[in-house]
Write a protein that binds this DNA or RNA. Structure first.
Lengths: 342, 342
DNA sequence: CTGTTAGCGCTTTCAT
DNA sequence: ATGAAAGCGCTAACAG
């Protein structure tokens, strides 16, 4: 049985110092800046640390030094496959630095986001990475007053709090619509779930692109506040076809929905791409292996993650630097699911 | 441009106290135990906090009180869809408590896991949740000495460090094999990627179940250390069929591989389930929407997450309590992809 | 290269 | 219901 005894005072730096026959500060230095300590002292300290099972106290260190090596990361979801690539980029990049990442998941709740920002700022993070440009006023104010640099990721738009790296969701949607038009589709529908601010911008791009050509029909747009899943993609395709049976193509807000639509079309005997073109968004790993392969708008998720952390590292010791917002762009991946002319 | 001025000393509790005309301790109390403070004082303090933009310092609080409200969570992956459900369970459960979760991702690296455990313990977490039972000796020793309760999740086996909740990967694999045998498949192959300890146990269950019936053939097992993806599932099916063309069914280590195998079979004109039965593991959301629907071993991921946090809450203020390890079990979902007799 | 001194901002403990 | 004093464990700043 595990023994938990919070009264037994833990080993402190002073204990280690006494055991090693040096002073506390030498212990501190041999942990943080070993090059400033003689090899002999360093070895004695290391041995004492090992022998006593010393674990430095992060809170005491943070309090005394007024700094931490934590980079706070705020995302709206960990289930959404989009963010897993971003995380991979961030983790890859942070591994090359002395910093560590702490994730907060606000689950698409603005008040949850405010709460998390407050919690993170209490810890005096070395930097913050937050998803999106659309924080509440109060969240935005906290980020603006924060004593650390802030990178907003995933999106692209005017007036970021500090730094920003992402892409234009509107432009991505426009390129999808243009691709579908090029392939000869003209009665194009839209399927969207969750409809967070970025999804809204994709819908806006979709709408604009079609309106510019006089091809927009409001009834061809189906959305739901529910979270995107493959199953929901099938349902939404059913809803769309019931409301607007004439649609010859559908732009899906993301690849989960698009995969669901593709599979549902197969179940209904609807031929893709001949009878119905389907285009997704994000270009998830699985999409190109579906039958037919799913066309999609590829988004630079990994590069956003890596880029965000690199941006932060670049400015973290240079408070005066302020790089421009970075637009990484998107790329349409034309595959069989929209190859009407092929 | 964002102003970062680390020299400008931040607002402290004493500043708030002066502004509110009370002492620091009253400020402290009106934040943490408002019921101990008169309403008048509380209102004045709240106003002062608001006016000055006071943000309590987490490090100072942790140092003085020797406690935090952080529950550390260590997972080997955030990309692996398996953990997203676990996270959802944990987040749902923690929302009902005053604690907050901090995720560490060790990316299937044992040394990364050690490093993260060390980092987490420095913060004196209120509790720890770690994936798996197979830590290195050094990791295990740290967890055993930790001044907090520890829950190991995802697996089931002898001698957990402290608490445990999960299911038997071996039994799950056995049930998959039994299902395939019942359906009349006899030359069953195995496809596995990553092959972490839990995957190894699934392979062990697969092997045992077939050996017991004299049906095991080593060449029908293909594995790779690479991470599971849909694309890899297609490749592994190709490898398996090249090495053992006689296989009439395949048990895949997880649903990503199984989905890839299913899609690759379609591409090759192999009829599923008639010519080839395919069974996955985990029962991801998408699996039942594939064509044909994918049979899979459903794992209680959400319940593991929620259960782990609930276990922790249950023992966190009762150091003497030590519940038994919880085995949540698995359930085979028989669907079209293995319905040979159907 | 090493040590001394003086806090960091908060909470605990004990008074009142 | 409120406060005064003491210190949590570490590091910055300055000596030596």
């Amino acid at each position: 049985m595990k023994e938990i005894d919070p009264k037994r005072s833990a080993v402190t730096m002073v204990d280690v110092a006494e055991a090693a026959g040096v002073s506390a500060i030498t212990v501190s230095r041999s942990i943080r800046r070993p090059e400033l300590v003689s090899e002999e002292a360093r070895l004695r300290v290391a041995a004492a640390i090992e022998r006593l099972g010393y674990v430095p106290d992060a809170a005491a260190s943070a309090l005394a030094s007024k700094r931490t090596d934590v980079v706070g990361l705020l995302v709206p979801s960990l289930t959404n496959s989009v963010f897993s690539e971003v995380l991979r980029g961030i983790y890859d990049a942070v591994e090359e630095t002395p910093y560590s990442v702490q994730i907060g998941n606000f689950r698409y709740s603005p008040s949850g986001e405010e709460r998390l920002i407050r919690t993170f700022l209490r810890q005096k993070p070395a930097g913050m990475i937050v998803a999106g440009l659309d924080q509440t006023d109060s969240s935005r104010a906290m980020l603006e007053r924060a004593e650390c640099r802030v990178v907003q990721i995933m999106d692209q738009g005017p007036a970021p709090v500090d730094l920003a790296i992402g892409f234009s969701h509107r432009d991505g949607a426009v390129s999808a619509v243009e691709h579908l038009l090029e392939q000869g589709y003209e009665r194009i529908g839209f399927m969207g779930a969750r409809m967070d601010p970025r999804s809204q911008r994709r819908l806006a791009g979709f709408t604009e692109a079609l309106k510019a050509r006089g091809l927009f029909e409001a009834r061809r747009v189906v959305t739901t506040p529910a979270a995107s899943t493959v199953g929901l993609g099938g349902q939404l395709l059913g809803d769309l076809l019931a409301r607007a049976p004439e649609v010859d193509a559908v732009f899906c807000n993301n690849d989960d929905l698009a995969a669901g639509a593709l599979l549902e079309a197969a179940r209904r005997g609807i031929e893709v791409p001949r009878q119905l073109g389907i285009c997704g968004f994000n270009d998830l790993e699985m999409s190109r292996f579906l039958n037919p392969a799913l066309s999609s708008v590829a988004t630079p998720r990994y590069r956003i993650g890596r880029g965000a952390l690199e941006l932060l590292m670049q400015v973290i010791d240079a408070p005066e630097e302020k790089p421009e917002a970075v637009d990484l762009g998107t790329e349409i991946k034309a595959r069989a699911s929209t190859a009407r002319r092929g």
